[in-house]
Design a protein around this nucleic acid. Structure first.
Lengths: 274, 274
DNA sequence: CAAATAGTGTCTCTAAGACAATATCAC
DNA sequence: GTGATATTGTCTTAGAGACACTATTTG
């Protein structure tokens, strides 16, 4: 750096200008197994989302995405990982940035813009996390996710035991032709997190349609039926297995191993290829 | 809001915690016509990018994307529009958020995170803008864009008259499986703007492949050949017109009007449908 | 007519969706 | 054998790419 630049920088103070606070907020998805009906049944998989019950204002007793404030000398990705680990002990291997939420009124505490992320935990990663889950003040829970289209609105429903959260959203375009969510109704979710969840779900589904992110839900070795279950759970749509397998073949490689003792024909175990 | 929340908020001070500065930076693309060889030739279209020559440190005399600091009571989109208008007098009708750049060392002035946007100006919008372009301290220019793959690297070349800027980038995945650009070489571009430009180009191309954003480059009425020229210029790839037309039919509607006096068969004028 | 662009028809190949049929385990 | 899931084959249809051909203007 030349002297002129050095001198300029020494007289420059970012603190002289107004600055927002910045948070990273993470929508963490995983799968849960429904209890099978008979001993022979394979359990169906259901998409679930990690939420945290807020113990303090603002939005005390509401449910929010895990997340927290960006600190100096870290990227927004590092911040997301750190906050998630602090709040839930989860270790993540995937992040997708899904947007920045910067509306001035979005947080009653003041000028706070949110870096929204999507993450996925496999069943394995979920086990490790639960070992040290659930303290008292703020506690985390997995909610079953429903996200369905009705007329020109989207209905988001999150269920966990007796607790049911819901939100009604509309997807519109702003003056810059950007897709944007409006919250028409919101029951139980903090801040504008219904918007972030809707964005995350839309992103997740789009990727999963093209066989992306799918493997993040599963252990290293899996059957094609399991892989199909994942896609079906995320997209909330049934697929014919013959067609699924033909398409999936492109993304997986055989391990040579088989499942055992399931009460029906054993299945080949695959791993992700490339 | 209940009394407890109110009381909490009155004792809450965001300023007690460290905060970054936030900027919006915009990669604005447009098309320029090459000069035709003969009177009958239709001009070929070339993709161009708007850059600003910095008149002050840091990176004095380097070229940078238009942009500037986020102010209170505005969204990052409003900030992008405002800064672009202040610096170039351009009026935009499209923005796409293409990422957040938050590496702590990305700006020598200190902790500044960038909200990166993509925008497009039509020839019409470009005319209006140039009426009041080019003051002295900082001045804006349109650069021809080349972005080509070589081995496992991407070569970005920006040309404007005698001025040639270039950068060499590599696309890698970080530990969160996120696509990330590394700058291997950089000649003339300020900050990490080579990364932002590479991201913007990748996004733009992906959308243009699927006939999105294409119409932003053109006036309301256009011929299918013009539309094809746009796609070809952005993707830097020749397409067979028969196939292009079959696909394009899905997105356009006839106006009933025709071009005139071009030295060859007149073409139907279309507009975007839906 | 020549040069240039506009526009159509059709063949091939690939991929997706639907559906039928066969395979193999635990009990 | 029965019930369940695993796996393969094939028919049909939609779309993309390649290419040959026709149409219409100005000079």
């Amino acid at each position: 750096m030349n002297p002129e630049e050095k001198e300029f920088l020494s007289g420059y103070h970012l603190e002289d200008y107004p600055r927002p606070s910045v948070t990273s907020d993470i929508a963490v998805f995983s799968l849960r197994n429904e209890t099978p009906l008979t001993y022979r049944d394979e359990p169906k998989k259901k998409l679930s989302l990690l939420l945290i019950k807020r113990g303090n204002p603002p939005f005390k007793h509401h449910w929010a995405l895990p997340g927290g404030f960006l600190q100096p000398n870290e990227t927004i990705e590092t911040c997301a990982e750190r906050e998630l680990h602090e709040e839930t002990n989860a270790e993540i291997s995937l992040l997708r940035h899904i947007g920045t939420f910067s509306e001035p009124e979005r947080d009653p505490r003041g000028w706070i813009i949110s870096q929204a992320f999507l993450s996925i935990l496999s069943e394995q990663q979920l086990q490790n996390m639960l070992i040290q889950g659930g303290d008292d003040a703020t506690h985390a829970e997995w909610f079953d996710v429903k996200f369905s289209h009705l007329d020109n609105r989207e209905i988001l429903t999150l269920e966990q035991g007796q607790t049911v959260l819901s939100a009604e959203l509309q997807s519109v375009k702003n003056q810059y032709d950007m897709q944007k969510w409006n919250i028409l109704n919101n029951d139980g979710l903090a801040f504008d997190h219904a918007k972030i969840i809707a964005s995350a779900l839309t992103n997740l589904r789009e990727e999963v349609k093209h066989f992306q992110l799918l493997f993040q839900f599963l252990p290293e070795k899996f059957t094609l039926s399991e892989l199909q279950q994942v896609q079906q759970a995320v997209l909330d749509k049934q697929i014919l297995s013959a067609n699924f397998r033909r398409k999936a073949a492109e993304y997986v490689a055989e391990t040579g191993e088989f499942t055992q003792g399931a009460g029906h024909r054993p299945a080949k175990l695959y791993r992700r290829n490339k």
